[in-house]
C-alpha cells in the first residue's frame, strides 16, 4: 500500500493505492491522520484501492471523527463496488460524501 499527499489550495488530497488490511492499516493511519490535522477539507482518492477490510473501516472511522471534531469535511473518491458494498453493509457509506472522480470530489468541497 502507498499513500501520496498533495495540497490543492486549501484541500489536502491523499491518493491511496493497494490493499488496506490489518498489516497495512497502521501505516495508513500514521500517514493519513496528519493530513486531517493540517487540512479542513480532505479528499481521499481510493480509485486504486483494491481491498479494504474492517481494519480499513476503523481508519475511516478515525478520520471521520477527527474531521467532524474540527468541522472538517472528507470526500471519498473512486470507491470500487466491493468497497462500497462493505461500507453500505456496515452503515458507513451514508456518513461520507462520495464522488466518482477527483474532479467531482473537488467540486463537492468547493
Amino acid at each position: 500500500m502507498q499513500i501520496t499527499i498533495k495540497p490543492e489550495g486549501d484541500i489536502g488530497i491523499a491518493t491511496i493505492t493497494g490493499e488496506i488490511d490489518s498489516r497495512t492499516a497502521p501505516q495508513a493511519q500514521g500517514e493519513l491522520m496528519p493530513v486531517i490535522e493540517k487540512f479542513n477539507k480532505i479528499i481521499m482518492d481510493m480509485t486504486e484501492v483494491t481491498f479494504l477490510s474492517s481494519a480499513g473501516l476503523r481508519i475511516l472511522l478515525l478520520i471521520y471523527r477527527q474531521a467532524t471534531a474540527k468541522d472538517g469535511r472528507v470526500v471519498l473518491v473512486g470507491l470500487s463496488e466491493e468497497i462500497k458494498d462493505t461500507m453500505t453493509m456496515t452503515g458507513f457509506l451514508k456518513f461520507f460524501v462520495v464522488a466518482e472522480s477527483l474532479e467531482n470530489g473537488l467540486k463537492a468541497l468547493a
Binding site: 477490510s53 474492517s54 481494519a55 473501516l57 476503523r58 472511522l61 471521520y64 471523527r65 467532524t68 462493505t86 453493509m89 456496515t90 452503515g91 458507513f92 456518513f95
Partner: peptide
Amino acid sequence: DLEKPLEEREIGGLGIFLTMR
C-alpha cells in the same frame, strides 16, 4: 448498532459481522 452515527460506534466485531453476512 449499525445505524448509529459513527461518533458513537464501537468498531469491534465488524470483521466477523461481514464474514457471517
